[in-house]
Computed example of a mutant assay.
Amino acid sequence: MNDTIAAQASKVPAVTLIFWLIKIAATTLGETGGDAVSMSMNLGYLVGTAIFAAVFAVAVSAQVSARHYQPLLYWTTIIATTTVGTTLADFADRSLGIGYAGGSTLLLALLVGSLAVWYRTMGSVAVDTIRTKKAEVFYWVTIMFSQTLGTALGDWTADTAGLGYLNGAVIFGTLLAVIAAAYYLTRISRTTLFWAAFILTRPLGAVVGDLLDKPVSAGGMALSRYSASAVLLGLILLSLYLFPQRAAEKSH
């Protein structure tokens, strides 16, 4: 009986405005935090990826093992995916030399493949159907790919395409606004819109994070990565305290 109840209980939050605001802050933190470890600490992308991958593994294990939605645990896991996504994308793009375009293409294929296998196996990729451990595993694998893709896509837009961090933020912010309008004005699948928005918040966070901590000569504001990360973490914790989130409810 307990296993049945646990399987039916959602462990992911309802999708609300505060969800998206925290998600953007978390993805921005992933960029500044990932850069702080790999660059400011001079540990490099490979070591940084190994550190954050270990944190991600622990967080996901705890999240999957939990019996009910725990906001702090959930968002810790999200932050873990976005930090490891930052260092992993930088390692693939820069250290392996495949470039931002190559990295983005590879990660997009992995993301689409993850969603396709998830849908074929479970019959749905909607958030309100994530009520079993198998669905949760698909959910977190997909999020990992989306976070890593977002980093590569943000870097490609700002650097390779030459649009800069501020213009990149405007572009991704505009695309998110278009998705929000589509949510209210069209009948496009809510699941499709959710994943489109979820993916786009990552490159937005990537370019905003770079805007905060990159040198002025490169178009950034040259803020301390440690200070920026601390402020973002504080904002996330404050938001969780002031705006308690409920678990996603099953559609009828």
Rank of each mutant, 00 (worst) to 15 (best):
M1K: 14
D3H: 13
T4V: 09
Q8K: 14
S10V: 06
P13Y: 07
A14I: 02
V15L: 10
V15G: 04
I18E: 04
L21T: 13
K23T: 03
A25Y: 05
G33D: 00
D35G: 00
V37D: 03
M39A: 15
S40P: 00
M41Y: 12
N42H: 15
N42Q: 15
Y45P: 02
V47Q: 12
G48C: 06
A50I: 10
F56H: 15
V60K: 06
A62W: 11
Y69S: 00
P71N: 03
W75F: 00
T76I: 12
T81A: 11
T82F: 06
G85I: 09
A89I: 07
D90A: 12
S95C: 07
G99Q: 06
G99E: 07
A101Y: 07
G102A: 11
G103A: 14
L107P: 02
V112M: 11
V112R: 05
G113M: 06
D128R: 11
D128W: 10
D128C: 09
D128E: 15
R131S: 14
K133Y: 00
V137G: 04
V137M: 12
Y139N: 10
Y139R: 11
M144C: 15
F145Q: 03
G150E: 00
T151M: 07
A152S: 14
A158N: 02
A161T: 07
G162P: 02
Y165W: 11
L166P: 08
N167A: 14
G168D: 11
V170P: 05
I171H: 01
F172I: 10
G173D: 12
T174E: 10
L175I: 15
V178Y: 04
V178A: 11
I179V: 15
A180H: 05
A181F: 13
A182Y: 07
I188M: 04
T192A: 14
F194T: 02
W195G: 05
F198V: 06
F198R: 06
L200P: 07
G205T: 08
G205W: 06
V208C: 04
G209V: 03
L211K: 00
D213E: 13
K214E: 10
P215S: 03
V216F: 11
A218Y: 08
G219W: 03
S224T: 05
R225S: 07
R225T: 12
Y226I: 15
A228E: 03
A228K: 03
A228R: 01
A228I: 03
S229A: 15
A230M: 04
A230W: 01
L232T: 01
G234D: 04
L235F: 12
I236H: 00
L237I: 15
L240C: 01
L242V: 07
F243M: 11
R246T: 14
A247H: 09
A248E: 12
K250M: 14
